[in-house]
Structure formats: structure tokens, C-alpha cells
Design a protein around this nucleic acid. Structure first.
Lengths: 246, 246
DNA sequence: TACGGGAGTAGAACGGTGTTCGTTTCTGCT
DNA sequence: AGCAGAAACGAACACCGTTCTACTCCCGTA
């Protein structure tokens, strides 16, 4: 029996490398045979150019010069494709060797790399949030983060939960940024865009919003990167450490 | 000129109460006239019973015993409906009078109420994440949170960003829980369900995952509520305070 | 009192989505 | 050479959000 996409998907959550899948079928006539790798690559190209919203099975099929049904020989469904995407995305994250004296910056570094990868492919966080946490590639990143936090002298239980919280926040942050960017891109309505608009809007609020009016400057201050690092450091600084590291 | 849905939507981001919209048209023959309020109410009923994924314009129209097009006289589009939903959801959140001596528990309390509201309507966080932050009802909750944090003696700039981080985390957390629940509900594949399954799976990991294997117990420990309070407290405890409050 | 305009309702349809069915086409092996 | 079987594909299904257009009924005005 041949490896159906279903079996391949199940295997992706287990151990063991997947065999290179010998080529068969009428692919010799094609310029480029349809493989899972080719599907994922062109999917990434579409997302990078037009955003995750533009990634449909039909659009993907057109890019591969075939019909939509041809994809389902390699991919179970779109949810499976999403999983493949975030899998490859996580696979490209390089993890440092944990250094107890530099665990904070190492942690921030990995989170930042993760964020950059997510932002490079706008909207893909949506797929990441829906993905199962048992994927081997995502698990690899979690393992790396866990190693760093543990090296920092954080109690295992706290470290385990903290890693989850951090990754969840990175996902949510990138999703919010992507959504905001896409809303900004299609400036359909007279929507809020610039910081001045935001400030003026806050200032025009009724007196039921005293603090929002008073601190409008602070509420609208900072770039998304500033807010990202603020929150990441907020969570890291809150970690109680039993160990010796700085 | 009459208030079209577009105007009503724009007004929702400004000040001033909306007029009760006198009834006209052939609605006298209907048992229940179609109003924005009725639409939102039945939408919530659908979400509560079948989840946000089941909320479609057609499904909503059927529940209201009408056609899909009839809804568009009261709602601009589905995005607008989403905004109305999270608006009402936030409107039902009661905010305490800030008490500097109890600001931590007040903060946790509001976040927990917010979480409970989100979880009551599974998947609605997806709409909340996409919603514009300038909605008056969501702004009201932010104002309340900001007041509490400021009362706790936190520097305005830190408080402003912290409120954003907290609300974003609540959204992300509830979305993750909802997704996990729905995946658990439709146990299609041999998917991970129980904690024992998770433990066994982690134990079966290759030696490339030493920490994940070693601390599988910690990684799978705790309920979602435990993890929620852990992260919320993590962020709150990280807040540097200049003031005098506890 | 008669009437016309307009708001509310609704059916049908358009373009799009993910997915499946049945068939065709080609390959590697016997 | 012939065949089993895998890959590719065109057409179709069910569903989505949304729009077009016609219709119905109320109300203010003449």
C-alpha cells in the first residue's frame, strides 16, 4: 500500500523520517511534478505576495498549473496544508544552544525570529493558532524554548507553562499586526490609520472615558515592535527563578 | 434621510446614543419584526448552541424565518455583525470601581469575566481579534482596565501597553481553548484527547526532545483555567509600580 | 379619502470557497 | 507487450457572503 496523505499526516505527529516517495504516474510529461514540497513552496510564495487570505486551493492549483482536485492527492485538506505550512515555518527557526548566562536574550531572540517569520507571511498566524500542538516541527521549537527557560533556572512547572504562554502571545501578536495591516491596506472606509487620527479620536471621546482621553498619547505610543518586546519582557521578568543564573 | 446600516456603523465609533428607530414597513404582519437587536440575539443563540463556525448569514436568516438578503437592511456585512456581537459581549462586562488596595484581584476579575463571556460563545474570539479597537464598547472595557491598573500605581505608559497585552492574551487564550474544544468535539482522527494520550505521546518522542520527554508531566499539567490565571498573574506581577499600592 | 413614495422584506442569482466523483493518462514491472 | 495501479484532472456538489430586483405594506401629504 502506498502512503496516502492521511497516513503521511498521521506520521507527521510521530517519530521517524519520511521516505522520499519515489516518483510515479504521468508526472514525466509535466515540467514540474506535483509534490508536497512544491505545494508548500508555492503556497508560501502566494502568502508572501498576497497574504494568507489569498491562499485558496484554487489559487494554489492555478499557480501549479493544474486543477484543484489534483492537490488532494498530496494533501488531506486545507487544514492539513495549514499544518504543513506552519511545520515548515517552524522548521526554519534556528534554536541556540542554551546559555544560562544569556537565557533572557536567547528567549527574546527566538521569539523575535518566530515573530519575523510569521510577519513575513501575513495572516499565517491564523493557521498557527488552529494547528494541533502535537506537530513535530512546532514541538521542536517548544523544546528549544523550554531548554532555554530551564537553563535560566526556572522551575520546570513554571517553565512549561511559560513557554506555552510565550508562543501563544507571539501568535496572537502577529495575527493582530497582520489583521491591522490588511485593514490598513484596503482603506475602504474612513477608518483609523495614522496615530494622529487615533489621538484625535480618543480626544473626542465623551467624559465617560477619562483615562483613555488623558493618556491617549501613551495608548497610541510605540511601534508594534516596541509593544512586542514590552510584553515579552513583561512575561519573562515575571518568571520566578530558583536557580543561580542572572 | 434614514439611518442606513453604514451610517449606524460609523456612529458606533463616535459618541451619542442611537435613536430607537421607529418601526415601519410590512413588519406588522410578522410575528417578530427584524431588528438589529433581534439579529444579534439570535446570532448569540446560534453561537452558544453550535459555535461561531456555525454562524452564517444563511443560518441566521433561517433562524429568523427569513431570507439572507433581509439581514443586509440592518447589517452592513458579516464583519459588521461580528463587531455588533463583540460590542454587546463587552457591554455586558461589569467594571468595578477601582480600589488601589485590591487592584490585582480586580484586574484578574475583569479578565476572568471577559474570558467566561468569550468561552460561553465558542469561537467568538476570532471575531474579537479581527474587530477594530475603536469600537465604543470594547473601548469601555479598556477604559475600565486602564483605570484599575492606574489605580494600582503603574506608570501610565506601562499601564497603557499592559492593558493591550492583557486583552490580547485573553482573546488568544479563549480562541485556543475554543479551537481545542471543537477539535475534541469532532473526534474525527485518532487525535490527542486525554492527558494520558498526551503523556504517552510525549514519552514516545525521539531523543531529540529531551526536555519535552523529561517534563511531560509539567507540560500537560493543569487545567486551562490554571494556565489562564498563571499567565495573567505572570503579566501582572511583571508590572513595575511606582506608587504606593500593594 | 386617495395616493404616491419609501422603507422593510424576500426570492433568485452571482461569484467564490473547500471538497468529491468518475475518468483519463501515464509509468514501472512482470 | 500488456497490465496493475498511481497520479492528474474536469466537472460537479454543497455551501458561503453578497447583490439585484421585485414586491408589499405603512405613513404623510394633497
Amino acid at each position: 500500500m502506498s502512503p496516502t496523505p492521511q497516513e503521511r499526516r498521521a506520521a507527521r505527529h510521530q517519530a521517524g523520517p519520511d521516505k522520499p516517495a519515489v516518483r510515479r504516474g504521468p508526472s514525466g510529461g509535466r515540467k514540474k511534478p506535483i509534490t508536497v514540497d512544491a505545494i508548500v513552496s508555492t503556497a508560501f510564495a502566494i502568502i508572501e505576495a498576497e497574504g494568507y487570505e489569498a491562499l485558496t486551493m484554487r489559487r494554489l492549483a492555478v499557480a501549479l498549473e493544474t486543477g484543484p482536485s489534483s492537490l488532494y492527492a498530496h494533501v488531506v485538506n486545507k487544514e492539513d496544508l495549514d499544518e504543513l505550512l506552519i511545520g515548515r515555518l517552524c522548521a526554519e527557526i534556528e534554536l541556540p544552544e542554551p546559555d544560562p548566562s544569556r537565557w533572557r536574550e536567547q528567549l527574546v531572540g527566538v521569539c523575535t525570529r518566530l515573530r519575523d517569520q510569521y510577519l513575513r507571511y501575513p495572516g499565517i498566524s491564523r493557521a498557527a493558532l488552529a494547528a494541533a500542538p502535537s506537530n513535530l516541527d512546532t514541538l521542536r521549537v517548544s523544546e528549544g524554548l523550554l531548554a532555554i527557560v530551564l537553563a535560566g533556572g526556572v522551575e520546570p512547572q513554571v517553565a512549561a507553562w511559560a513557554v506555552d504562554s510565550l508562543t501563544l502571545y507571539v501568535n496572537a501578536h502577529t495575527l493582530e499586526v497582520s489583521v491591522a495591516n490588511s485593514r490598513l491596506r484596503r482603506a475602504d472606509d474612513g477608518w483609523v490609520v495614522s496615530r494622529d487620527d487615533m489621538l484625535r479620536r480618543f480626544a473626542a471621546l465623551p467624559e465617560t472615558f477619562p483615562h483613555t482621553r488623558r493618556y491617549a498619547a501613551q495608548l497610541t505610543a510605540g511601534t508594534t515592535a516596541d509593544r512586542f518586546h514590552f510584553t515579552i519582557n513583561l512575561m519573562i521578568d515575571g518568571l520566578p527563578r530558583t536557580g543561580q543564573a542572572t
